[in-house]
């Protein structure tokens, strides 16, 4: 840190009192650096496990909710590479006797403002959507924001997966149609596309791994 030269040559000799001050300053900065470094290491050691647990629980706490909130369950995390080359990780929920209860798949797509991230819950045979939750979105408050509200996302409960879901602006005539949030068609379409993508990803996994 300091550039104090201990070799005194006649030309570039630093006067003794200034040289001593520079050493004192360097000692103070070094001492503070070591003291603060120790404090930060302590904080890191104590808090890092708690933070990691928070990050994991964020997703894991939603998983049972999306497959019907069973009383006792086990969650297995799996990963799979889709035909388009993307690597996804998702969850298989089973009960204590290892009977399958459902799947929870993350999906995301670019909405009106920024990326929208959702979790989709499907039943064991992947024939029916059990529900969705919007995990992260930055859509317009009061408009696109409302895709997180139960009024919109409850429409996805019990929706069939035999055909891709589509968004309509009027009352749905068909069980594959979801009514858009008024004034936020793009955000609604993005959620539907993400749900369809999640269903396709799960199907490609089940086709590759029949067990």
């Amino acid at each position: 840190m300091s550039t104090v030269s201990t070799i005194s040559e006649p030309g570039n000799e630093i006067p003794a009192p200034v040289r001593k001050n520079l050493l004192v300053d360097a000692w103070l900065v070094l001492f503070l650096a070591i003291a603060f470094g120790a404090a930060l290491a302590f904080v890191h050691a104590k808090l890092s496990p708690i933070i990691q647990a928070n990050i994991r629980n964020e997703t894991l706490s939603l998983v049972p909710v999306l497959v019907g909130s069973p009383e006792e369950y086990d969650v297995k995390e799996l990963s799979h590479v889709t035909p388009s080359g993307e690597s996804i990780s998702f969850f298989h929920v089973t009960d204590k006797s290892d009977k399958g209860l459902g799947w929870v798949i993350p999906a995301s797509s670019i909405g009106f403002a920024d990326r929208i991230q959702i979790l989709v819950g499907l039943d064991e045979s992947a024939s029916k959507i059990m529900g969705i939750r919007v995990v992260d979105q930055k859509e317009t408050p009061g408009l696109g924001n409302l895709i997180s509200d139960p009024a919109f996302r409850d429409q996805f409960e019990d929706a069939p997966t035999s055909e891709p879901l589509t968004i309509v602006k009027t009352d749905p005539a068909h069980s594959h149609q979801i009514r858009a949030v008024t004034g936020a068609t793009i955000s609604s379409v993005t959620v539907a596309n993400a749900v369809n993508q999640a269903v396709m990803d799960l199907r490609s996994y089940l086709a590759a791994d029949p067990s």
Binding site: L40, A41, H44, S48
Partner: peptide, 9 residues
């Protein structure tokens, strides 16, 4: 090895 606690400094 995770030195990210020193990031801000």
């Amino acid at each position: 090895v995770d030195l990210s606690i020193l990031s801000y400094i």
